[in-house]
Simulated scan of single mutants.
Amino acid sequence: MELKPVFLLIEDNLIDQLVIKQLLTKMLDVTETEVNITNNGVEALQWLSTHQNLQQLIILLDIQMPVMNGFEFLNAYDKLNNEFKKVIQIYVLSSTLDQDEIQKINENNYVTGFLNKPLPIEELKKTIYLNT
Rank of each mutant, 00 (worst) to 15 (best):
E107K: 13
V35Q: 10
L28G: 07
Q89H: 06
Q22W: 05
Y129Q: 08
Y77G: 11
G70H: 08
I128E: 01
Q56G: 05
N40M: 01
L74W: 06
I102S: 11
D78R: 06
E11C: 06
Y110N: 05
E122Q: 14
N75R: 12
I88C: 11
S49F: 03
K104L: 08
K117V: 04
P120M: 06
I59N: 11
L130V: 15
Q55T: 01
K26W: 14
T25Y: 00
S94H: 01
V87G: 08
G70S: 15
D12Y: 13
N13Y: 07
I121H: 03
M65G: 03
E34L: 03
I102L: 06
Y110W: 13
V42K: 05
A76E: 10
L8P: 12
I121K: 03
L54W: 00
T127R: 15
N131V: 02
W47Y: 07
G41K: 04
L97V: 01
I20C: 05
W47S: 07
L28M: 09
L115S: 10
L14H: 13
V35E: 04
Q46N: 12
P5L: 00
V111W: 03
D16Q: 08
L3C: 03
Y110H: 02
D16I: 15
M27C: 05
L9T: 04
E2R: 12
E2S: 14
Y129E: 13
M1R: 08
K126H: 04
D12C: 13
E72V: 06
L23M: 00
T50R: 04
I90E: 04
D100I: 08
F84C: 13
N69G: 14
L80N: 05
G41I: 10
P118H: 14
V35A: 03
L60W: 07
E72T: 12
Q55Y: 01
D78Y: 15
Q89F: 02
L3F: 00
V19C: 01
Q22G: 10
L61T: 10
T31H: 13
F84P: 10
N39F: 15
Q103F: 12
G70R: 00
L9P: 07
N106S: 06
F84T: 09
I10R: 09
E83A: 12
P66K: 04
V92K: 10
Q55V: 05
N108P: 02
T38K: 07
A76V: 01
Q46R: 10
L8S: 07
I88E: 02
N131D: 09
E32W: 09
G70C: 07
L57E: 13
M68S: 04
I37S: 01
G70I: 05
K26E: 11
F84H: 12
V35W: 07
L97G: 12
L18S: 04
V92Y: 06
Y91F: 08
K125N: 03
A44C: 03
L14W: 10
Q64D: 15
E107A: 10
N106T: 03
E122G: 02
Q64K: 15
